[in-house]
Design a protein around this nucleic acid. Structure first.
Lengths: 217, 217
DNA sequence: GCTAGTTTGTGAACGAATTCACAAGGCTCG
DNA sequence: CGAGCCTTGTGAATTCGTTCACAAACTAGC
């Protein structure tokens, strides 16, 4: 019998690719839940997620043993386990920096709150925008940022400003003690090792497409 | 002396991670170009790009030999070479599907045109939106999509609609013969092997942050 | 309760990507 | 023009991630 626990996951370093796939599996499980399926096999999850059944089983095996041999996985049980692993069992407090088009698109994105990401505020330094609201979320002056963070203790900051000011803003974020940042600015940012920075970089993806188009057989 | 040519790159499969780093290097080179630096070392590129000098040299070595031992790389020469490798030496025709918040944010994004990505049109099926323009780009009825593509021959399609309709739209795109797709819908899409689909999935990145926050020492 | 049929969980094998380490080449300065 | 100093380009070693393959565990049907 498998004796892994949540704690083991902290010891063994989990690959980023594994975590991304867990997200994908969870999304399918939620679909299955709605449709009322009760069990699912690694083979089915693999097909929907564009991977292999061995990969699915290996990914899950880092965290424990969730299935029944000969049967598959219980949909509700595995969903719960994945949500727990991914840290989605709680609410995260999020602030967005930048009330431009991207910031606005983020503020209205329903998937945010749906998964427990609670947007506290949007920050901007343009006085025209400060004081207004975006989908019911207050736009605050950037000068208040540090004192607000101290009071409201957000865990995640989202950078949604143009590339030029992004590193400077990241430095301010890091100084407040926030340890997780999602960056939409199309620049490579540098932060201390204990701060996780994830980038969503459309420019890079587009160049990947351009490369693929230029290098086909 | 190194005898690699562009053609070799087509033979050896280049890792996606390598291509992403090439994008990053190019971004720095453009900064250096503006600042008037004439040469740059693999060490400098590595520092700015958050990698190692050996990695930089290995990445470049797949495509040729661009540097001078003892000296480094000529900034303009390497920029030109990278632009060529990434297929940025030409203009790509792009269509966006979906005139919602994300589609709008994309249409106004300056980096798009700057890098040679020319947005032909935005498509939507909401009659309220059709006929209007977004940053000077026409919003067209989705029903025209196939006939427009046949005439205007875009190479790249961007999916900027909610998850539910995304696979169906991708199928339509694939049927027109377009071979490169950038997907912003938070779902896993399936396409034939000869169609490159890149995903920009904020939900997944957020869950990666949530995981990182939940699993710190 | 035994047999046939599934499907998991996981070491071991494999393959891919990164890092090491160093020879080869080129520049600078005396 | 030779010594000293850099920095590239690249095989070899290593590390990391994926795939294979099979024993173990479970169900169902007879």
């Amino acid at each position: 019998m498998n004796e892994f626990t949540r704690l083991d996951a902290i010891v063994k370093r989990i690959a980023e690719s594994t975590v991304r796939r867990l997200s994908i599996y969870l999304r399918f499980l939620e679909e299955f839940e709605v449709r009322g399926s009760t069990t699912v096999s690694s083979e089915e999850l693999a097909r929907r997620g564009g991977t292999t059944s061995a990969q699915v089983r290996k990914d899950l095996s880092f965290f424990g043993s969730f299935g029944k041999r000969g049967l598959g996985y219980s949909v509700p049980e595995l969903s719960t386990a994945l949500r727990e692993i991914l840290g989605l069992g709680r609410e995260w407090r999020v602030v967005i920096i930048g009330a431009g088009k991207i910031g606005a698109a983020l503020a209205q994105y329903r998937g945010f709150r749906q998964r427990g990401f609670n947007i506290l505020a949007v920050y901007d330094s343009n006085p025209e925008k400060v004081g207004r609201t975006l989908e019911g979320i207050e736009i605050r002056d950037m000068s208040r940022f540090e004192s607000d963070v101290e009071r409201e203790r957000p865990e995640i900051a989202v950078i949604a400003i143009p590339g030029e000011g992004a590193q400077e803003v990241l430095d301010r974020i890091v100084r407040t003690g926030i340890k997780a940042v999602l960056n939409f600015a199309p620049v490579q940012l540098h932060a201390p090792a204990d701060v996780t920075v994830k980038a969503v970089n459309m420019a890079m993806e587009l160049e990947g497409l351009s490369f693929a188009l230029s290098n086909r057989d």
